[in-house]
Computed example of a mutant assay.
Amino acid sequence: MITSSNPATGAELARYTPQSPQEVDGILDVAAAAQAAWRRRDTCDRTPVLQEMARILREGRDTYAALITAEMGKPISEARAEIEKSATTCEYYAEHAPYGLGAALWTSDLDRARRLARVLDAGAVFVNGMVASDPRLPFGGIKRSGYGREPGAEGIREFVNTKTVWIGPAV
């Protein structure tokens, strides 16, 4: 059995039956399939789901915060703030999902940054630097942020969604 205990008091909260490696693989396969389906879903279709997630988080704030406090030992005020931050994040992505002009990543792991830059839905990705246009580089958005690129040679290819990846020094 796996026991979950309150880190502050040591009191047992719950017991769970461990899962076999095959069960874990099955769960991970289901999660991967769900993520792939979410990724294929039109961004406008994601909006109501994210808004509902924000509503559910706020509605259950005290219950979720008590669970975070009991299982992690986080002060209740910080746990409530974490729930609010999560709800606000859902709302942010609900509002901005239809757009894809630029994205910025901040990391010291440049290999990971390169992998993430390939999958971000943005017309330009800047690593360890703010999103900015440069007359030497193509710049433009995807989704509802527009079609085509300007300036440079890419401007000729107006209907191509080329991605710019800029990588600054590791931080």
Results as ranks from 00 to 15, higher is better:
Ala113Val: 04
Thr63Arg: 15
Ala66Pro: 08
Pro138Arg: 07
Arg136Gln: 11
Tyr147Ser: 13
Ala87Lys: 01
Met130Ala: 15
Met72Tyr: 14
Thr89Trp: 13
Gly60Gln: 15
Ile83Tyr: 03
Leu67Lys: 14
His96Glu: 12
Pro138Gly: 08
Leu116Gly: 04
Ser133Leu: 11
Leu105Thr: 05
Gly100Lys: 06
Leu105Gly: 06
Arg118Asn: 12
Ile68Lys: 12
Tyr64Lys: 13
Leu110Phe: 00
Ala65Lys: 03
Ser145Glu: 01
Pro98Thr: 08
Asn128Thr: 04
Gly60Trp: 13
Asp109Val: 03
Glu84Gln: 11
Asp134Thr: 10
Gly123Trp: 02
Ala104His: 06
Leu116Thr: 09
Leu116Trp: 11
Lys74Glu: 05
Pro135Asp: 04
Asn128Ile: 00
Cys90Pro: 00
Tyr147Asp: 11
Tyr92Leu: 15
Arg112Cys: 10
Trp106Phe: 14
Ala117Val: 00
Ala66His: 11
Arg58Met: 08
Leu105Asn: 06
Phe139Cys: 07
Ala113Gly: 06
Gly73Cys: 08
Pro75Asp: 02
Tyr99Pro: 02
Ala94Asp: 02
Ala81Tyr: 09
Gly140Val: 04
Pro138Val: 05
Val125Asn: 06
Ala94Asn: 08
Arg115Asp: 08
Pro75Ala: 07
Ile76Arg: 12
Ile142Lys: 04
Asp109Ser: 07
Thr89Phe: 13
Pro75Phe: 04
Arg149Cys: 09
Met72Glu: 13
Tyr93Trp: 12
Ala117Met: 01
Lys143Tyr: 05
Cys90Tyr: 00
Arg80Gln: 13
Leu101His: 08
Arg112Gly: 07
Arg115Lys: 15
Arg144Tyr: 12
Phe139Ser: 02
Met130Glu: 14
Asp109Cys: 05
Thr88Leu: 12
Pro98Asn: 04
Ala87Pro: 01
Gly102Ile: 07
Tyr92Gly: 07
Arg80Met: 06
Phe126Asp: 02
Phe139Glu: 00
Pro138Phe: 02
Arg61Asn: 05
Arg58Phe: 01
Glu82Asp: 09
Met72Ser: 14
Tyr92Glu: 05
Arg136Trp: 03
Arg115Gln: 12
Asp62Thr: 13
Arg115Ser: 11
Arg112Trp: 10
Thr69Ser: 12
Gly146Leu: 06
Arg118Trp: 10
Arg80Phe: 05
Asp121Trp: 06
Asp134Ser: 08
Val125Tyr: 05
Glu84Asp: 15
Ala66Thr: 13
Ile76Glu: 01
Leu110Ala: 02
Ala124Phe: 05
Ser145Cys: 09
Ala124Leu: 00
Arg112Met: 12
Pro151Gln: 01
Gly123Arg: 08
Thr88Pro: 00
Pro135His: 11
His96Phe: 12
Val125Gln: 03
Phe139Lys: 09
Pro98Gln: 02
His96Trp: 13
Ser77Tyr: 10
Ala87His: 06
Arg114Cys: 05
Ser108Ala: 15
Glu91Arg: 11
Glu59Val: 09
Ala65Val: 04
Ala70Gly: 03
Arg112Ser: 10
Glu84Val: 03
Ala113Arg: 00
Arg114Lys: 15
Ile142Ser: 04
Gly140Lys: 01
Arg149Gln: 11
Phe139His: 07
Ile83Asp: 03
